[in-house]
Every structure is written in C-alpha cells, then in structure tokens.
Design a protein around this nucleic acid. Structure first.
Length: 562
RNA sequence: CGGAGUGUAGCGCAGUCUGGUAGCGCACCUGGUUUGGGACCAGGGGGUCGAAGGUUCGAGUCCUUUCACUCCGACCA
C-alpha cells in the first residue's frame, strides 16, 4: 500500500488525555482515535494490528480443535436473570430496555448466550466435547476506564467455552487451552507469565491468568524466585508460621487516649505491630441482603479484599460509612472482637488462629485490651485473608516471593456446572441419564493485547511492533519523491518485495526525509528500506526498527536480505 | 463512589484575576524556494469560547445550574 493513499494521521504533539506510553504512541501514530471515556475508533493501522492479532488467535485455536461462532452483542436479560448474574454482575453490566420495555444487556462476557446456544443443539454425550469461541465486542461499564485500550469500556475479546461430559475431560481441555494460549502469546512476541488467579464474577474453581510483564501493569503478581509458582496477589498464598507472641500480658483493659491507628497503639503500649489485631470492618453484599463483618489480621499484615470476600462467599465488600459503623455499634479506632456487637460476623486470619497475648480495641472510645487470646473467640471464622508480602516464603518450595506488575491478557477457568446447572443445560450420557455439561471458559483480551505489545515494545521514539503483530512487514521510504531515479527505484523495490509475499508500505509522500523517518520510528514497522542518496552508487539502506541499526546494501542483495 | 483538575479552531495552549468585537504554535489550503533527520517565505480558510440560565449598555471573562473529559484514591479503624 502507498502511504500517500492511507489515512495515517500522525502527530508531533502528545494528546493531553494520555499518560501511558502505549496510549500516547497509539494516538500519535494514528492507530486509534478516542471517542469518549473508554471508547475508541480504530483507524486503518489499528485495524490492521487488530486483525493480525485476531488471525494468530484464530489460527491457533482452530488448530487446537476449537470452532469459531459469533454471538449477538445485545442479550435478552432473561438469560442473565436465569443464571443469577443480572443482579450479581453489578454496575459494570449495561442494562437497557427496548421499545416494548423488555430488559436487555450488552454482553460483558457470553457464558449465558453460549450455554443457551449449546443447550438448544447438543443433546447427547456423542456430540461432546465441544469448544466454541468468538472474537467479538464486549461492553463493560468500568468504574474508571483508563490507559487507552488497556481498560476500555468497549473492547474486543476472544471468548471461548468448552463443554464436556465429565470433569477429567474438561481438565484435559483446560490444559490444552493453556498450551494453546502460550503458543499464541509467544507468536505475538510477548514476555508473559502464567499465574494462579481468583475467579471473580465469572465464577468456577481453578483459574489461571496470562500476564504480560510490564511496569505499567494494573495487576500485582507474586512470583517465586526459586520455582515456577506465580499468582495474582488476589489469589497468592504462602507458607506461614502461627503467630507467637513472647510477651504474655495479663488480659486487661487499658486506657489508650487518642491512639486510633495501629502505629499509635503500638507506640503507646510499646509493642510490635505483629502483636496487635487489626480490625477492618466492611459491609458484605449478598444477593438478597448485606451485613457488617469484622476482618481481623495482624497489625503488620494487609487485608486482601478478594480473599476476604471469598472467605464469606459475599458478592462484594464495600466500606462502611461512619453512620453505618455507629448503627452497628462500632467505634472507629477502637474496634476489637471482644465485646463486639453479637450481630457482627467475625473472620480472623489463619495466622492468628492460636495466638495469644495480643492487643486489640475494646469497642469503647479510648480503650484497648492487652493480653487477648484469639482462642477465646467463639463463632469466629478462620481463613487466609491476608495479602502475601514481598519476602514471604513460597508454598511449594520455600523460595522467596516477590512482587511484579503484569497486564492480564488471558484468563482461563474451570467452570464445572456453574452455568449449566442454573440454565438447565443438560445432555444424555451413555446410560440415558440427564447430566449438566461440565464447562471450561477461556478469554483473551484482543484489543488489550495491542496496548500490551506496545507497553513491552517501545522506545523514546515510538512503537516497535513484533513480527506477527506489525501492520506491515517493511516500509520502503523514498527519500525525495521528486528525484525520478529514487522514485522509480522505490516503486521497483516495493513491487519486488510484494511479489516475494511481504506486506509492504511504500512511503511515497511529498515530505522531507527527516519527516518520514520520524513517522517510521513513531509507527514502528519492523524494517525500513531507505531509497536515497546512496542510490547513485547503486545501494540502499535497510534499517531495523528495534535497534535502529542500518546496513548499506546493493539493490539485489536487499531483496534477498529482507 | 470520594477527592483534584480541565473544557477556547483538527491537536497543543494563551486570554478569565481587572467585562469592551477571540489569539499563538502545530496541522490544513494556494503559490514559490528547499529535499538525508519533524524546512523556509508569502498569502489564506477554519471557533455557537462544553451546555443552559442569570447579572450587565456589553460576558470567553462575573453568578447559578448542568454536562463531559482527565488524573488520584477507594489499605482503613
């Protein structure tokens, strides 16, 4: 294609809405255009990259035996009500009504639709297993869309769903998808890590995320230095020793004026934060009701909200307002499990299970208890609700755990019968017995991958596309299009490279050399052939975008070299 | 949802305090020169100043309301 015919609006200015490198370059190089919060148009270059990524995804999935379909974007709410997610999914689910006042949603994910599709056409175990996927738009009304394509509201996603007669077969497919995803991300040239994850709103049991390692990633992941263990902070676990507190204070109430934070209490009592109970009160939301819950962790630990939420099977945890705290009888700064209002559920971190001699709030302004025993707590639920810290020990090998940042580009789940049960999606087994499908589900953020690739591959001049994602393989830059020899040589090289099967961009614009070079660097096509001054000696230059190194070659040698 | 900020030409911004007929740079159009690292000269087109209401002889500027967008936070007893 000729640059002069393409719509590639590059810009020297940094758009003020963008802060992330990938976002800035994608806008400046004319890949995308923003239309509203979390909404983007893809310009020709952006669409090419999107198609390239989709193609890789499709090729690998097809060769793994999956089949592509396309489901409706607008989904009748009835399906969502049936699965129980119409309420549970929260505000991210965009709901609306048609002219007849029927409820609809814009699909944020398509379990319901796919189960419904299969339910209507699969009746026998002989038709299983089945792995269906689509690469389609999704809409999630995110709380705070940001970072361009990284967290948009409307985005392109590959979502796949597999259906099996039993658990073992579903697990086999899960592993096949894990391998397939690895191949896809390798082909796209990404440095990624597979980590254990929380299942979130999708539900189900075992799940793994594919994380592209990048400083700007929104997810914190915990990785072991010694073995392969890696997990999202939301699901990370570690070895831990039960809390042992040497100082055995007698149980008593102590006046602690103005000591409302862990730090102040520790200073006042001359104890270590690990000898305190930190209470985090939250409101737990369920389908039908909500309740106040006290989560108790060591003073030097941090509550992991997702783990905490899972420990009581709540839909979501939210902060309690000051009025709500008062209503349930809690005093901010002086909360503790002893003498707390009976209606409040108490969840204690496992690390504290046998601890004794701890300090905690007395549920009375200005007072704390010392010498409290966790054992004495009746009705408390014990679970792992604390975030893994850097330096904690790996649960598998005892190695040191560290934090790193990642961009979630893929997520695979073992769903089981989470959807087939409520939606009554069943098949007949060998014995003629009705059984719900055992399912797996697998997602890839196709549009997010565009941002992830650039986050991992850019320099201070612009994008550096990887081989399979690049909008073009090579660009032929004619230094001065008014120089007939240069122009003709350029067109000839362009034609020859095309004939060899390359996807080539011919920069035939009436611009100066420097201008075109800047655009090449900004856009990030992997290679450029410069037809310029050296043509008089019968040679041209081949420039590698990643290293910016250049080689001078004869015309014939060039065609071979590329 | 809490906090902060910004809306003026396609993009980046000044003008708002102190009201008096809307400006700069880039981009764009025309002509000319230039052609190996975002050229130069001359001429030109383009804006209901986010929206609504109010004050005023007069509002981009003051007041009220509202909308949109961006950033930060949502770790806290």
């Amino acid at each position: 294609m000729r640059f002069s015919n393409l719509l590639i609006p590059t810009s020297k200015e940094t758009p003020n809405e963008a802060t992330l490198q990938s976002h800035i370059y994608l806008l400046r190089a004319g890949f995308i255009q923003s239309v509203g919060s979390g909404l983007y148009n893809y310009l020709p270059l952006g669409k090419m990259v999107l198609d390239n990524i989709s193609r890789v995804v499709k090729e690998e999935l097809d060769s793994a035996g999956a089949q592509e379909v396309s489901l409706g974007f607008v989904t009748p709410a009835a399906l969502w009500i049936e699965s129980g997610r119409f309420e549970k999914y929260g505000k991210e689910l965009l709901r609306f009504k048609d002219r007849k006042d029927n409820d609809f949603v814009l699909g944020p994910t398509h379990e319901e639709m796919m189960v419904n599709l299969v339910k209507q056409s699969v009746k026998s175990y002989k038709q299983l297993p089945l792995n269906l996927y689509q690469i389609n738009l999704k809409f999630r009304d995110e709380i705070r869309p940001r970072f361009g394509l990284m967290r948009g509201r409307e985005f392109l996603m590959k979502d796949g769903y597999s259906f099996h007669a039993n658990e073992e077969d579903m697990k086999r497919e899960f592993h096949l998808m894990q391998e397939t995803y690895s191949i896809i991300f390798e082909r796209l040239g990404l440095d990624f890590r597979i980590v254990e994850a929380d299942s979130g709103a999708i539900g189900g049991s075992g799940s793994k995320e594919f994380m592209v390692l990048a400083e700007s990633g929104e997810d914190t992941i915990v990785v072991c230095q010694s073995c392969e263990y890696g997990a999202n902070i939301e699901a990370a676990v570690c070895r831990y020793a039960p809390t042992q507190n040497e100082k055995k204070d007698l149980f008593e109430k102590v006046h602690t004026p103005n000591a409302t934070t862990i730090e102040e209490v520790c200073d006042f009592l001359h104890i270590d934060a690990s000898a305190c109970m930190k209470v985090v009160a939250k409101k737990a939301l369920y389908d039908e009701h909500s309740e106040a819950v006290m989560f108790i962790v060591r003073g030097n630990d941090t509550l992991q909200e997702i783990k905490a939420c899972n420990s009581i099977n709540a839909n979501e945890l939210v902060d309690l307002s000051e009025e709500e705290l008062e209503d349930v009888g809690l005093v901010a700064g002086y909360m503790g499990p002893i003498g707390a209002p009976e209606a409040i559920k108490i969840v204690v971190d496992k690390r504290l299970q046998d601890a004794s001699g701890l300090a905690c709030g007395a549920n009375e302004s200005g007072y704390h208890y010392v010498g409290a025993d966790v054992k004495a707590l009746e009705n408390a639920l014990f679970d792992d609700i604390v975030a893994v810290k850097e330096g904690d020990r790996c649960i598998h090998c005892g190695g040191e755990l560290h934090y790193t940042k990642g961009i979630e580009v893929g997520h695979i789940f073992q769903l089981g019968t989470r959807y087939s049960d409520p939606l009554k999606a069943e098949f007949l087994d060998e014995n003629g017995k009705s059984k719900p499908f055992v399912m797996g589900t697998y997602g890839i953020g196709v549009s997010r991958l565009i941002a992830a690739i650039i986050e991992q591959n850019h320099d201070d001049k612009g994008c550096i596309w990887t081989k399979e994602s690049a909008p073009f393989d090579v660009t032929v830059i004619i230094s001065n299009v008014k120089d007939e020899a240069q122009y003709e040589a350029g067109v000839s090289v362009y034609e020859q490279l095309k004939a060899k099967g390359f996807n080539v961009l011919l920069d035939d614009r009436k611009e100066r050399f420097g201008f075109k070079m800047k655009d090449f660097e900004l856009i990030g096509i992997p290679k450029a052939v410069v037809i310029g001054k050296k043509l008089e000696e019968g040679s041209v230059e081949l420039i590698d975008r990643a290293t910016l190194s250049s080689k001078t070659l004869s015309l014939d040698a060039l065609i071979e070299e590329v």
